[in-house]
Amino acid sequence: MSEEKKGFFGRLAAGLAKTRNSISNGLNSIFSAFSSIDDEFYDELEETLIMADIGINATMDIMDDLKTRVKEQKIKNPEDCKQLLIDSIVDQMHVPEDAYDFEKKNSVVLVIGVNGVGKTTSIGKLAGQLKSDGKRVLVAAADTFRAGAIDQLAEWTNRAGVELISQSEGSDPAAVVFDAVTAAKSRHADILLCDTAGRLHNKKNLMEELRKINKIIDREYPDAFRETLIVLDGTTGQNALAQAKQFCEVAEITGIIITKLDGTAKGGIAVAIQKELSIPVKYIGVGEHIDDLQKFDPKAFVEALFEGDKKEE
């Protein structure tokens, strides 16, 4: 456990080092520039939250909450105010203890999301990690739509040394999932990871297809532990909330993977999603390497959210 943690922080720190070129103003500079808590201070704070993609509504809520607490606790010092804010968001982003139970059970993990968020890559990384934990992993290539998707996944499963269940491009994804579930049962796989095609959440028929896939797993493998992860691109803004909401309609989402957090984007929309839908973030993607899919650490995430620019503008 301690070794894993070190790896996590090491990786995250390396990923975050890149954010230093970011042009956004960070909290640190705000806190040092203000000696008292006033409107101007709150405005700056608000701006930082919005610039992190937390969104206007969630930001307003957070700010109202903060102001109330500052009053209640008679806080005068901006530095204390900062800690209060960080603590409250960390609290909110708390990952439940049973978040990774699927790793220990016979489970089916369905991975969904819009186009280009990094579903296939995330599955490849997850497969590799689970395999090296000694799990028997099976992967289903249910993205039968995008050109090259199956080959891409095959490459990842090759690297990870796990089995892939696939049909040809253009075949029925539900059929692939059916095959994969059957194989998972007969081969006694611990974990079945299902890749799906990227679909925009406002496309009715594609969302129905997902519902169908979901039903097949329910029906064919009722005693499997179910985990449904939505992958969100960390650079996405407010639309990620709409995505999460719409995907919730067709599948019971149990967790979020936020990818591409090694850039300058902060992925703050996850805070808004957690607030509104109470879905915990379980993983973050911070790079292209197989180890770059990390278990979510609220404290590190929130601090990174507020970690500002070291370079003067």
Binding site: I23, I50, M51, D233, T235, T236, G263, A265, K266
Partner: peptide, 14 residues
């Protein structure tokens, strides 16, 4: 550019 990009679009484009 992905049209769903958030605040970070300025950093990327710039």
């Amino acid at each position: 550019v992905d049209s769903m990009t958030g605040q970070d679009a300025v950093n990327v484009a710039e």
